[in-house]
Nucleic acid binder design. Structure first.
Length: 907
RNA sequence: GGGCGCGUAGCUCAGUGGUAGAGCACUACGCUCACAUCGUAGGGGUCGCUGGUUCGAUCCCAGCCGCGCCCACCA
């Protein structure tokens, strides 16, 4: 079946993917002899669907995996999903809400069953979307953070860290989400700048009748929990009040005025109300002064019974209004300022977070971080780009205890059981806990399991080894850990990357990966972060539908320059779809000209200059692409492919071989003209045969180099190419060997020769266009003043030049004919006899412009060369280069000037 | 407050201590036997500003202006 006239990605992408998957092309372990190359996928949320960030992240991983697979490595791309505790629980709760019920009515166990049902039905749609993108993950090995094995890993890690004292329970202020009703970690808090007010409130000083101390606050309702007022010890304004007391308005509580450095005389009134139960700083102040901690909020951030009756049960913002109204009535509000300040919000719930005093489980991150910092310092893990190491270090060196417990139902339930007296037993399972309890109490004792589950990121932190089977000693773990490259966005360096390094080192004794490639964020065309609320989301699936997965992948790769965000422009995707079309048509050209792939084709033994040249260009392209991918410079690799395929192969090679493959009709005058000339029929046939094979080979090399970026169209064209071959190749492109540039020759002489041809053709075309020479004009060009080498080149390539430059003929001559347009190619001059066709004045202007250009170049270079310090200090090769350039320009100028003279004479 | 990044063609972006590049857009010509999702030729940039280092700076350094992000306990 010949290739269809047009490239239709939708027709080829599905079938190839299906075949690859059926044939096990993605499976690790195919090449057991190969050194393993492993990437673990950043597990998408089970609730997730493919967005542009995923598309970029997974495209780059797939490029690396396909590249290394072709290079003979035993490539494992380990896929899997994250149970996404909060996100998933929210989804199912919303469903329950629609059905008029809620999780509490259902009960924990039934609720969890419901979540599993949801997961089986609706979870993981993203994996089918990744398949559409072409992701060659080893799907057979798909894992889920909540599956049996990974859950066991989580439990074991918890139990061991607890034994080692690295996990402990503590009562302190946490970030409490009053909507989701759970604690969250520092990282899940998003600080937003918001407009608000600063209320200045007068508190009467007990020992100084008639005197007040004014405190400023953005949260007046928390005054109900105040247990002190703090002033700076050196603040003269308040010196006389230190040690005295205020009677807290509305409450009547007698609280001390304390001196503490925390109070900043520059801020507000210089006196600050202290609410240890609801502010992290105040909590510390409270500890220093042994203040009472009064909790005035319940879990939903409604005021509780620790406040005066009038306020009980009020929601926090209602409470604020009520408190302010009463203070206003009492005349205690001195002043209200408008200010902008930062307020903590839950990143999932979007509501204001409350510092709240609860008991939670913590991991001793500081201890775990130490080896993790050292590993990066020693270079065992390298971040690309390297600057991210600074981000990593600064966070890790100031790391806080990690709050790992969550008051949710969906997740890994904490393996802790409590005895009647509160004694805690942390064990692998209930049976072990009961045994431990029996030993402890001396009799069988019923236990109560901890209700809480673990932070989702706790299980993600184990991902590189838990997915490979840990804690079992599996062959996979042995073979594929440590993994090689982690590809991720910078937004989860703290959440995920740092924690994987900590856990990997602690439990495996080895880093989890050697390289962390940190890619950019994908933004919209204007540079804004894509988000649902802004409505500026570009759906990758829509782009795949419209332009094909290959075009999208290539776009993302070509734009993945290090250290910069990607502003995705649709026009770019369209441009690269056109590139795929171009490739398709190049393959059609080969097909129509019977360019068949020959297994015995030997690139180093071609004889035609044009073929020698394309072999060399292929070699250079293969080198460039290989080096760029190895250095994670995806954009350079993509550009090198693009340039080679389009501008070298299609624009020139295909055009250059047409005269060989499609000789002009017999009977036409051959440029070399002579009877019984050197080119015999058999010589032509040999050249044709070689060229056909060479063209097929070069095309196949392009397909190889492009395959990591555009797997579908390359596989399709390869499929065509190999099946048309007299001895069809048995392998799909996905598992073929990567081009080995080191084994390919570069023929410099052939390159120079072909570059001369290209220059000659380009210059002639340029003049034709500039002079508006009619297409029909017959031009018998002559070359004057050529060296013998140039004469030889012309003899070899005259046919080529006449066809590409659309001449009647081109021959050597000793004289420049009158009325000719002249152009300078190195040492020689090409004359195009265009008397009567051209506009003399226009030609004169053209020549003058050229001369001017040469003059300005010469002047620039002369200035440099006249500079003594340049000549004495610049490296020799730079000076030589300048001299050569000057000579070239001078030569050109001379010829142009001569041409101008002749034109004037003729005119 | 600390840290990081970015200002290059009309737009979106590469890039380099010594001739500034791509895609899209634009102009002219062209349905030449792979391709009009194309071809050929062309226009367009004092590489944010000011200093410094250097023989030479768009590139290195400093400051400034503009934009963005991350971290942080400012009532």
């Amino acid at each position: 079946m010949p290739l269809s006239k047009t490239y239709k990605p939708e027709d080829i992408e599905g079938p190839h993917y299906q075949r690859w998957e059926e044939e096990g092309a993605f499976a690790a372990g195919r090449k057991n002899t190969g050194k393993p190359y492993t990437i673990v996928i950043p597990p998408p949320n089970v609730t997730g669907s493919l967005h542009m960030g995923h598309a970029l992240n997974n495209t780059l991983q797939d490029v690396l995996i396909r590249f290394e697979r072709m290079r003979g490595r035993d490539a494992l791309w380990q896929p899997g999903m994250d149970h996404a505790g909060i996100a998933t629980q929210m989804v199912v709760e919303r469903q329950l809400d629609e059905q008029g019920t809620d999780r509490h009515k259902l009960g924990r166990s039934k609720f969890v069953d419901r979540v599993w049902e949801w997961k089986e039905e609706s979870g993981g749609t993203i994996f089918n979307q990744l398949r559409r993108l072409g992701a060659s993950a080893d799907w057979e090995r798909e894992r889920f953070t909540m599956d049996e094995g990974l859950s066991k890993a989580v439990t074991k890690v918890f139990v061991e860290l607890h034994k080692q004292g690295l996990i402990y329970k503590d009562k302190r202020l946490v970030n409490w989400d009053p909507k989701l009703l759970t604690a969250i970690s520092d990282l899940e808090v998003e600080n937003r700048d918001v407009h608000g007010n600063l209320w200045h409130i007068a508190y009467p000083v007990e020992e100084m009748p008639g005197r007040h101390i004014v405190v400023a606050t953005t949260r007046p309702e928390t005054m109900l929990g105040d247990t002190a007022v703090a002033v700076h010890p050196d603040d003269e304004r308040y010196a006389s009040m230190i040690g005295k007391h205020v009677i807290l308005p509305l409450v009547g509580r007698r609280i001390p005025i304390v001196a503490d450095d925390y109070a900043d005389p520059e801020q507000g009134s210089g006196a600050v109300k202290i609410t240890p139960g609801h502010d992290f700083n105040d909590y510390e102040v409270g500890r220093r002064h042994k203040l009472e901690v009064i909790n005035i909020l319940d879990e939903k951030a409604h005021l509780n019974d620790n406040v005066p009756e009038a306020f009980r049960g009020l929601e926090r913002f209602e409470a604020r209004k009520a408190v302010l109204a009463q203070l206003e009535e009492l005349g205690l509000i001195e002043k209200i300022d408008d200010i902008t300040h930062t307020v903590p919000y839950g990143d999932r719930s979007g509501v204001v977070i409350e510092p709240w005093l609860t008991e939670q489980w913590y991991a001793d991150a500081a201890t775990l971080a130490k080896p993790a910092i050292a590993a990066v310092e020693r270079g065992e893990i390298v971040f690309v780009p390297k600057q991210w190491e600074n981000t990593y270090f600064s966070w890790m060196r100031n790391i806080q205890p990690w709050c790992i417990s969550r008051q949710l139902w969906w997740g890994h339930q904490i393996p802790a059981w409590y005895g009647p007296d509160g004694e805690v037993f942390v064990e692998m399972d209930e049976e072990a806990a009961l045994n431990a309890a029996k030993l402890h109490y001396g009799k069988e004792t019923p236990l109560q399991r901890d209700d809480d589950v673990l932070d989702t990121w706790f299980s993600s932190a184990l991902w590189p080894f838990s997915t490979l089977g840990w804690p079992e000693k599996t062959p996979e773990l042995d073979r594929y850990y440590p993994t090689d490259t982690l590809v991720t966005g910078f937004d989860i360096i703290f959440f995920w990357v740092a924690r994987m390094i900590m856990m990997g080192l602690h439990f495996m004794g080895e880093v989890p990966f050697h390289t962390v490639y940190v890619h950019a964020l994908v933004r919209d065309e204007k540079g804004a972060k894509m988000s649902k609320s802004k409505g500026n989301i570009i759906d990758p699936l829509e782009l795949i539908d419209e332009y094909g997965a290959d075009a999208l992948r290539f776009t993302l790769s070509a734009m993945a320059a290090q250290g910069r965000d990607i502003k995705l422009a649709k026009s770019r995707v369209e441009g690269y779809r056109n590139f795929a079309t171009k490739l398709w048509n190049a393959a059609r050209f080969c097909e129509m000209n019977v360019c068949l792939l020959r297994p015995d084709f030997e690139p180093s033994s071609v004889r035609q200059p044009v073929n020698k040249w394309i072999v060399g260009e292929t070699t250079r392209a293969a080198e460039a692409v290989t080096e760029a991918i190895q250095a994670y410079r995806f954009n350079e690799a993509a550009d090198a492919c693009y340039h080679f395929a389009w501008h070298t192969f299609c624009d020139w090679y295909v055009e250059l071989i047409k005269p060989i493959l499609l000789p002009r009709d017999a009977g036409e005058v051959r440029p070399q003209g002579g009877e019984g000339a050197a080119s015999s029929a058999s010589g032509d046939e040999l050249a044709q045969e070689e060229t056909r094979a060479c063209a097929a080979w070069a095309l196949s090399q392009i397909l190889h180099l492009l395959h990591p970026f555009m797997p579908f169209v390359t596989e399709e064209l390869w499929d065509k190419l190999r099946h048309d071959s007299p001895i069809p190749d048995t392998q799909d492109l996905i598992v073929r060997d990567w081009p080995n540039a080191a084994e390919l020759p570069i023929d410099k002489a052939a390159a120079t020769e072909m570059e001369w041809v290209i220059k000659l053709v380009t210059e002639i075309r340029s003049v034709r266009a500039e002079m508006n020479v009619p297409v029909a004009a017959k031009m018998n060009a002559v070359l004057v003043g050529a060296h013998s080498e140039t004469q030889h080149r012309l003899a070899t390539h005259a046919d080529l030049v006449t066809r590409l430059a659309r001449l009647e003929s081109i021959d050597l001559a000793s004289e420049i004919p009158d009325g000719a347009v002249q152009l300078v190619i190195d040492e020689a001059t090409v004359a195009l006899p265009l008397a009567g066709v051209i506009d003399i004045a226009a030609e004169q202007a053209r020549l003058e412009k050229e001369i001017q250009k040469a003059d300005s170049e010469i002047a620039k270079i002369d200035k440099k060369l006249a500079n003594d310090s340049f000549v004495s200090k610049a490296p020799a090769h730079v000076i030589d280069e300048q001299r050569t350039r000057r000579a070239d320009h001078a030569q050109a100028k001379e010829k142009l000037a001569a041409a101008l003279e002749r034109l004037k004479e003729a005119g």
